[in-house]
Design a binder for these strands. Structure first.
Lengths: 120, 120, 120, 120
DNA sequence: GTGGTCTAGACCACA
DNA sequence: GTGGTCTAGACCACA
């Protein structure tokens, strides 16, 4: 259920984080559901345990999950990190747009891009 | 005339490249004008010489500048890098939007953001 | 009658220990009363038998309970664990305060907190 | 300037984090100051590079520092994490006190403890 | 030199 | 079995 792009410059732990968040957002995992164990994911994705751990460490720090020694990792009661994540994403876009504006990207360029990306 | 943001994730050599291009685009430097020397920039910006060199190497490879042993670095006759710069910027925005989309950023969020950023 | 907080960093066996002691302190269980069986608790709390066992092992080691092969686990004649429990609690608070002090928590912050928590 | 307690149950990376924060709070390091390099700290404290890295990763995630590849790690412009840290500390104390209250810790116990810990 | 990512593996606490 | 900490070391991008 998690797909990694080894070509991407986005670090693997980051890809894992984002996909776990998406699985939660789409309801595949509900609050207090137990997520697959670190070792299971490590085996399934063929990724080192430490890399998976890092992904979950950050998810926990961001309030998306909580872990319980010996029991596993669970979806937080209220993974409100979603809101924060969205805000961060918007901030990132804002920065990219600001940078683009200085390089000649026009409003209609962006309009076109958005229409493309959000078309049905 | 060049401002670096050390907090940004954009590498410094990249920031230098972009700002030189912008200085050319805005007419501060015209074709065949001599640009500040690597050492002068290094001293002024307090940046490692290697970093400046790298910026100019890439600018030269992209046809924006040309260098002349012992004379200095000059703006190319036809610094057509503009288009590529803009394309890169659009690609960056596209990536940020794609990432944001997965995190719940809606079309209207973006619409609002664009309107804000491009308002008179 | 025992409530576990899976989100807490306090180990589950520890939570069980403390709650059993509290049930004794509050008189729910009197000296020589038989406590619920390990299996019953395990089923009721949906907790691994080993975890429950560990809690009772420690309670027994601390003189709070005693067990009788085949009969069950009983409240000790004089479950003097109370004092130690309180001491531990104070030690925990002390550590939290020490840590907080270094992070800017002032005496008046604490004064306020205590007043709040101990108000009628 | 950083002292580690290897006996403590507090993880080393956590101790490092807290001490860095204290060095910032006490003004030893000011905003935008460069902190000692990861490798230097690793050598000085005789702690593995990865452990130091983890400390700084978390500090960066919390907005206390920012890092710049090839240049180093710097104190954030506005390390407002202090406030958050303090809030977290108070929350921790609150929890410890709540737990203690149930175990017989009285208001005067706490009063005594605070007076002791904050005496001149 | 300086930070960033990833792998490999040891050892521990808890369930 | 399951997560948490730590060490050791490789390899990369950037300065």
């Amino acid at each position: 259920m998690i797909f990694l792009d080894y070509q991407s410059r986005v670090p693997i732990y980051q890809q894992i984080k984002e996909q776990v968040i998406m699985l939660i957002n789409t309801g595949v995992y509900a609050p207090n559901d137990r997520l697959p164990s670190i070792r299971a994911l490590s085996a399934e994705l063929n990724i080192n345990v430490n890399t998976i751990k890092r992904a979950f460490q950050e998810l926990e720090a961001e309030g998306v999950t909580y872990s319980s020694q010996g029991r596993g990792i669970f979806v937080a009661e209220n993974p409100l990190a979603n809101e924060k994540l969205k805000e961060n994403a918007i901030a990132d876009i804002k920065q990219a747009v600001a940078s683009g504006k200085a390089k000649g990207v026009t409003k209609s360029d962006l309009q076109k891009l958005i229409d493309e990306m959000y078309e049905v």
